[in-house]
Structures are given as C-alpha cells and as structure tokens.
C-alpha cells in the first residue's frame, strides 16, 4: 500500500526528516508517536503534498506509484486522505457544495459517474450519523466558526464520505476532551476495513486506547527509531519520551 524509503525532507535550511522508512500494508493501522518537534507533522504534510517542504532524498510509493511528484488533488484522487491537525476555516464556502465538489472529483478520477443531488444527500446524511453530527452543519461554511471538537469530527466525517484507501490522522486527538475523543475514535473505528489503511499520528497514548493499532513506531529526530506492537505505546506512556535522548546519545 505505502512504502516510504530513506525519506529526507527539509523546511528552509533545516532538515526535519532524516532518512525515514515506513511500510504500511492493506488494512493495517500504524501509530506514529513521538515528542514534539520529532517530525510527525512534517511526515503528514510531505505525504499529502503540502508546499514548503523539500524532499532531498528517498522515495514514497503509494500502490506502486511515486507519490512525491503528484499534485495534492491527484494524491487525494488516488485514495490518500489527511485529517488535519488544524483544519483551516473557509469562510463563505458552503459545506455541502465543498463536499460534493470533492466527492465528485474523486469519482470522476475513478471513472465513476457524478452523484445526483438526491443520492448525494442520502449518502451524506448516512455518514453524518456515524459522527453524531447535525445536518445543520451542511448549511454552514467549511469549518468556519466550528469549535475544536466540531472541526475534528468534520475531518473524520469527510473521511467517511470520501472513503480513502489510506488515511493519515494528524494529531486528531489534540484539543479534544474525552467525550469528543470517544466520538471521533468511534467514527474512525467504524471506518476500519481490510482495504483501508491508516496512519495515526499522535503525541499521546490515550488515543490508542480507543483506536487499537497493529503497529506502533517511535519517531524521533526525523527517523523511526523503534517499531513494535501496541504494547510499545504502553511502554512509552510509562516511560515518557525522555529515554529517547539517552538511547540516541548511546
């Protein structure tokens, strides 16, 4: 599904990713944990094609295709989805209109016909339920005036609608209280399937109580320094990130 090899990336003059390797198979859930500044968000952004990052070495293959040369919208059309840590507000851009444009562009890329208004609305209402979202959301502008929790739920709602092959959840738990976290995690779990892989990027173990990963990786100083099963997350919770410095120094 996804194969990252020797990935190096810089922001300005600063190298953030320093030779990162990661392989994600179909249906797998990988958690990437690490202290602040370890390169977690950079990884999410490089994978989804955000400007401002320069890849200096390495490759990223998505279903055998070189992802790094593709425009962000083409990556989305191929089935990649990023749930943003800080979803931007789009004042004046109506949510329904936005969702329809996005869904139809994906369908078009897959050679499927565009959905008519009725089936689109039916689909959307069904997905709203998964996230316990009110359909008043559809009349509002994208993320505009949303609370922190609403924004995160809206991200997962979009994921439900767009049905990606690989979803990257960038610190989806940040800023959520426990109830909102539960709703978001339930949404994510409802979307688990053998064809859908996920990369869950997080600072804290608590999200992994709700979304059980198959693999856990520790990202530090731009590299994955340890990988293991979900028990690694518990170990991190116990020991914190302090040991990393000791390990790297050794």
């Amino acid at each position: 599904m996804l194969s990252v090899t020797g990935l190096r990336a810089t922001v300005g003059d600063k190298e953030i990713l320093k030779g990162l390797d990661l392989k994600v198979g179909p249906g797998e859930i990988h958690a990437i944990m690490g202290p602040n500044g370890s390169g977690k968000s950079t990884l999410s952004h490089v994978l989804s094609g955000r400007d401002g990052y320069t890849v200096t070495a390495g490759s990223v293959l998505f279903e055998g295709q070189d992802l790094l040369t593709l425009e962000p919208e083409v990556r989305a059309q191929l089935g990649l989805f990023l749930a943003f840590q800080y979803p931007v507000e789009l004042p004046g851009v109506n949510n329904t209109y936005f969702l329809k444009a996005a869904l139809n562009s994906l369908r078009k890329a897959r050679g499927e016909p565009e959905l008519d208004a009725v089936s689109f609305l039916r689909l959307i209402k069904e997905k709203l339920k998964i996230l316990h979202l009110d359909d008043s959301l559809l009349k509002r502008a994208v993320n505009a005036g949303f609370s922190g929790g609403e924004k995160k739920r809206n991200e997962i709602f979009q994921m439900a609608l767009l049905e990606p092959k690989l979803a990257i959840l960038d610190e989806t738990d940040s800023g959520l209280d426990i109830d909102a976290l539960r709703v978001v995690a339930e949404g994510v779990n409802a979307l688990r399937s053998p064809e859908r892989s996920m990369i869950v990027v997080t600072h804290y173990q608590r999200l992994l109580d709700y979304i059980q990963p198959d693999y856990v990786h520790v990202l530090a100083r731009g590299r994955i320094i340890r990988s293991g099963g979900k028990e690694l997350a518990l170990e991190l919770e116990e020991k914190g990130y302090g040991w990393i410095d000791a390990e790297l120094a050794a």
Binding site: A76, V93, F98, S105
Partner: peptide
Amino acid sequence: FYLRSRGIDAARAQRM
C-alpha cells in the same frame, strides 16, 4: 491546500 487535499483541482479550488 485544504481543498486540494480533498481532491479538488487548483483552479477550481481558487474559484471556490
């Protein structure tokens, strides 16, 4: 970028 990450091409995203 947000719009493009959802699969909408740059020209259309700008128009939106």
